[in-house]
Design a protein around this nucleic acid. Structure first.
Lengths: 203, 203
DNA sequence: GTCTATAATTAGATAGAC
DNA sequence: GTCTATCTAATTATAGAC
């Protein structure tokens, strides 16, 4: 079991949590190590002590946020042995929407890096995004064969799910200003999960 | 009629086009005015001559890219007087997906700024995003009343459309690496537009 | 209108005390 | 393990020649 952390641990953990926040908000170039250090309550050179460079800190932060997603999805499926694949898939999609609402940092980082073909994008894609894509495909393919999922190529389904699911939370401040709704409110999150599930599943 | 530009004009226009590119790729903080100047083929102080600061250049770039969207949508609806509202709405959604594919910069900038509650986010939302939201709502509301649109609150529909529609193009490099598909290929774009329309409209 | 040169600030990283 | 002090490089913006 891995630390999901809400802070409280030692300096490395607090630095990592602050790094996730700042990298998500400002992207890699815009994030300053001084800002990260300030939010972690430590001085800036301490980041170089625990993580040897800004680049390595970024990699560690991305590992940590993806690990939090993996944990959330794994916990959701644990002890679901007898449940049918369709119900399991819907529960996973619901958990994914909930996670995106509670941790908009993940998709903020993904959209910050996935748009340019650089070293960081390739590392993140090979290590995290592609395995997630393939695991999701393995769950959806039998359902699609059984006609229980909307009839679209899986690539479309995946990018519709990961686009539509987190978007209102990624743009939380904008969403609130435009609609007057609170993207952190339980009923808004639940209704959005219902909407995504209703769109993607046909059974 | 406004310049849609593919470059070729004077320095201010070339600087603006380069600024859209770089702000989209690296977000505001990560974009350097030297990089923008280099891509525009001018020296860095010239940006301050034409646009007085990096901040003003950003505002001008955002106005320009939203103007390009407005132009594309306006041209699409021009001379569509006799066409019924449902067909018009579908054509607009299709045009929106096409625009997002050809100009992923727009939603790269939106996701870069809409995630933090700052001065730029508020300006962009009040001036561009909210009016677009309201115009879209005016088109969808009568269709929803007639049962021709999926039965969801409009806020959900809008953030599903603007999340799912552009996402594979915003993450173009990642999408290509994960799926092997080319997000600039005409058939990929067309099929994605079909998918979005199929999901949102019930008639 | 566009350039070169440069000022003022801030970035990431290192040295060394404790 | 954490700090203060500081180095070097890169940032935005300005001054002034042409």
């Amino acid at each position: 079991m891995a630390r999901s952390s809400t802070a409280a641990d030692g300096s490395p953990r607090r630095i990592l949590d602050a790094a996730i926040e700042v990298f998500a908000e400002r992207s890699f170039d815009g994030a300053s190590t001084r800002d990260i250090a300030a939010r972690a309550g430590v001085t800036q050179p301490l980041l170089n002590y625990h993580f040897s460079s800004k680049d390595e800190l970024w990699h560690a932060a991305v590992d940590a946020i993806f690990e939090q997603l993996d944990d959330a999805l794994r916990i959701r499926t644990a002890g679901l042995r007898g449940v049918d694949p369709l119900t399991t898939a819907k529960l996973l999609v619901r958990e994914f929407v909930h996670f995106s609402a509670r941790h908009p940092q993940l998709h903020r980082i993904i959209t910050g890096e996935g748009k340019t073909d650089g070293e960081r994008m390739r590392w993140m894609t090979d290590r995290h995004t592609k395995p997630l894509y393939e695991a999701t495909r393995d769950i959806f393919t039998p359902l699609a064969d059984a006609g229980q999922v909307v009839d679209l190529p899986f690539a479309s389904i995946y990018y519709i799910l990961t686009g539509a699911g987190p978007h209102m939370f990624v743009l939380g401040p904008e969403f609130h200003r435009v609609t007057g709704l609170d993207p952190t409110a339980d009923d808004v999150i639940e209704r959005h999960a219902d909407a995504i599930i209703g769109l993607l599943f046909t059974a």
